[in-house]
């Protein structure tokens, strides 16, 4: 099984951003989102699977993503999520905030 990936708990709230970023490239269903994040982070980030669905519901409630029934790559019925225009705007906001945060952290770390 190799090395166990780290759970994404270092930055609370970043899960929303990761989901939005993932969906900004392609429409995916829930499991697909988990896999994509895991793979594209080079197995560094593991989404806590249980938190994914509340997060998806929250994003949908805010109108940032839209879920609809469709088929997965293996031809199974699943809810496929798609990012909305408002979601893209939110992604920009969160990306900027993330960049500011990481920059600030980097400054602190360099200062030491």
């Amino acid at each position: 099984m190799g090395r166990k990936p780290r759970k994404n708990d270092s930055l609370p709230g970043s899960l929303d951003m990761l989901i939005l970023r993932t969906l900004s490239g392609r429409d995916l269903h829930g499991y697909g989102i988990v896999q994509f994040i895991q793979q594209s982070s080079g197995n560094e980030l593991l989404v806590e699977e249980g938190s994914l669905y509340p997060a998806l519901q929250r994003l949908e409630l805010n109108g940032w993503i839209d879920g609809d029934w469709g088929l997965t790559a293996n031809n199974r019925r699943a809810r496929i999520y798609r990012i909305t225009a408002a979601g893209r705007k939110q992604l920009t906001v969160e990306t900027r905030r993330y960049a500011q945060l990481t920059l600030a952290i980097a400054r602190v770390m360099e200062g030491e």
Binding site: G30, Y31, V34, E49, Y53, L61, R77, A78, R79
Partner: peptide
């Protein structure tokens, strides 16, 4: 709107999670 079709929504959620577990 969620309230009005909450039964359907929670059914959908259940199905989604089941699919997730099956794929995993």
């Amino acid at each position: 709107r969620y309230w009005t079709n909450s039964a359907r929504r929670s059914e959908a959620l259940r199905e989604e999670i089941e699919l997730h577990l099956a794929e995993k």
